[in-house]
């Protein structure tokens, strides 16, 4: 059993690989409720932390503070329970949600990164999970357009910068399409676990993509 944590967006959410999940809106992006959600989830499932196979946490890109909240929680729990942790790409989680809701198999995600930039990455459905096309990057909206042929767009980037949606037949920008949820981490986490990607908790770090933070 894998415990999945997602705190990179406006909601903090938790899920177990048996399918049960909870989410709560965060106040001031601080994810104060994440431990209560975990406690409820584990108690309902009747399992202890020690019985888990691994933990999985969304490592970004996303809100910097939110990413650190999730990672700090994953580190603390995994260290206490002697478990390893799986680092999951937040844009893959979002793409996974788009597949779950709409069955879209070719998805280009663009997440608002502010300062007229987006985090962007493309995903293809392989029959089990959305697989990254290894093109994760931070992109200026002035730089270029995102190739739209045969793809659907999804994420807050298309809402914030409508110019990006040019050429796309479909762009999913409703509230759920802008937030990664822990329930959509489950199949990604199981695959990563099978691929032996779990690492020591102290080695899990945020993937900020943006290194220059002083203007």
């Amino acid at each position: 059993m894998i415990l999945c944590l997602e705190t990179s967006g406006r909601f903090s959410s938790v899920a177990l690989s048996n399918g049960s999940h909870y989410s709560a809106e965060t106040e001031n992006f601080q994810a104060e409720h994440i431990l209560s959600l975990i406690d409820t989830l584990l108690k309902e499932a009747g399992i202890t932390g020690e019985a888990l196979d691994a933990l999985a946490v969304s490592v970004g890109p996303g809100r910097f503070t939110g990413l650190r909240v999730g990672i700090a929680v994953a580190q603390g729990l995994a260290f206490a329970w002697h478990k390893k942790v799986l680092a999951i790409d937040s844009l893959a989680i979002l793409a996974q949600g788009v597949y779950r809701r709409y069955g879209a198999e070719k998805v280009r995600v663009a997440m608002d990164a502010r300062r007229e930039e987006v985090y962007r990455e493309s995903f293809l459905w392989d029959g089990k999970i959305m697989v990254s096309q290894q093109d994760l990057s931070i992109m200026s909206i002035k730089e270029r357009e995102i190739d739209s042929e045969e793809w659907v767009g999804a994420g807050s980037g298309f809402l914030e910068y409508p110019g990006l949606a040019k050429g796309f037949k479909t762009c999913y920008i409703s509230a759920p399409d802008r937030t990664p949820y822990a329930e959509d981490m489950i199949s990604l986490a199981i695959k990563a676990y099978q691929d032996r990607k779990a690492i020591e908790p102290a080695r899990i770090l945020p993937n900020y993509l943006r290194e220059e933070v002083v203007s």
């Binding site: 601080q30 910097f64 503070t65 700090a72 580190q75 603390g76 206490a80 329970w81």
Partner: peptide
């Protein structure tokens, strides 16, 4: 600093919960 405090607080609180 709120962001700095959050790291120690959440790591510490989670570690205590786990233990």
């Amino acid at each position: 600093l709120v962001g700095a405090l959050l790291v120690g607080a959440l790591l510490g609180r989670s570690l205590a919960y786990g233990l």
